[in-house]
Amino acid sequence: MSGGAKAYFKAIHAIVWKDLSAELRSRELLSSMLVFALLVILIFNFALDLDIKIRSTMTAGVLWATFAFAGTLGLNRSLALEKDRGCLDGLLLAPVDRSVIYFGKAISNLVFMLLVEAIVLPVYNFLYNVNLFHWGFLVTLLLGSLGYVIVGTLLASMAVQTRTRDILLPILLFPVIIPVLISALKASNGFLQGLAVADILPWINILIVYDLIFAAISFVAFDYVVEE
């Protein structure tokens, strides 16, 4: 690995390490995401019919709605913490390519989202009596979450510069992530209903393509989003 590439990955690692260490101390971000997610699935548990068949068809929808809304809390908080004490300027002053900051923040957000999902899934399993530990479903969860944070981190960096960031992020984010949510929902439902992999594959392919395209767009656009 060349010196430049090594410094690039070292800086990404530094941002992820910093975010995880700070979160380990404050637990502000994870606790708010987690409490929200658990409350949503608890409310759905009482609201939905007790019929096991109906419940299993609703699973993907309930879970993705929960993760999408809990995710906006995390994205907002993650960038707001940088902005409020001027730390975003501290990051922007570092002599690294600005995409380092984007990828560092996106990886941290992905870790937080996956941690919340890792806690929510067993709870959902227990409350709804639906087995979620299927490799296909878990891969879909990973690809969907990846697409969500790739777009979410970019838009949160944009929204955090405004006074109405809390309102602006969902308004910007949800129209853009509709392809992710629909594909993830369809693929998750397919795996949980036991459909053939060939029937689900087009949705997985859409997720992969979406993730790649938006990662490339974010790589190019982040510099312009954060600069005055």
Binding site: A7, A14, K18, S26, R85, G86, C87, D89, L91, A94
Partner: peptide
């Protein structure tokens, strides 16, 4: 360049040493 503003640009949930290690890694 080194920049000092009236905002600290520091992370409150990290120690002084951790803050400097973080920025040191960013500046290689």
């Amino acid at each position: 360049i080194g920049v000092v503003t009236h905002q600290p640009l520091l992370y409150g949930d990290l120690s002084a040493e951790e803050n400097l290690f973080f920025y040191g890694r960013m500046y290689d």
